[in-house]
Nucleic acid binder design. Sequence first.
DNA 1: TTCATATTTCCATTATCATGGAATTATGAA
DNA 2: TTCATAATTCCATGATAATGGAAATATGAA
Lengths: 106, 106
Amino acid sequence: MSALAHEKRLEIFRLLVKRGPDGFAAGVIAEKLGLPAATLSFHIKELDRAGLVAARQDGRFIHYSANFAVMRALIGFLTDNCCSLAESARATNCSPLTQPVRRKRA
Amino acid sequence: MSALAHEKRLEIFRLLVKRGPDGFAAGVIAEKLGLPAATLSFHIKELDRAGLVAARQDGRFIHYSANFAVMRALIGFLTDNCCSLAESARATNCSPLTQPVRRKRA
DNA sequence: TTCATATTTCCATTATCATGGAATTATGAA
DNA sequence: TTCATAATTCCATGATAATGGAAATATGAA
């Protein structure tokens, strides 16, 4: 949850989401965002610990890509906490995004 | 985005979501979560800055309640960043929670 | 091997956040 | 007013996170 709290990490993650499954090599991310290699490595490790990105070795390069499943789980968690738990909030302006969301649908 | 990163703040927010529109007085929240008044005040101010809670004065009490609109905006933001932006991710396991979500539906 | 490059780890420094007692402010009651 | 209480602000202290150069590690190329 806190992995996306840092602005740089959010930038990294958004970049990878836009990129799709191929991902970017660490150095490319660092260059695109103007980060020193060590700093990028630090942040991407945080994202990795949170399971938000996946690493794939490709020769000397390590490609990082966004993990959509974990992202959806996070969204589901927030959705649950916004709507499903709020018994007394049913009558308020807390309408679900679309349908009521069950926890961790397959 | 980072306001919910802190565990105590997430607890506070969840408590308020479950409570609904009436909210709880600051002291009640502090007591329920076992937090000193100053600490609670610090965290709830963060939530307030993020727009995640609303404050309503009631005599000497200040009632805090969850702001569902901002919560939904946050979920919408995450949903957009998971699915809508990812052109190349369409073919991956990134399926929207239900229907494609348009930004900030009324 | 040797070299070049990609990435990470190390680590000292800095910055930011969190904590909570005490003082302060704000409000209603007596 | 005066008092009691709710809540915030102040502030010193401690904890955690971020930064990035330099060194170490890893991998493929020559």
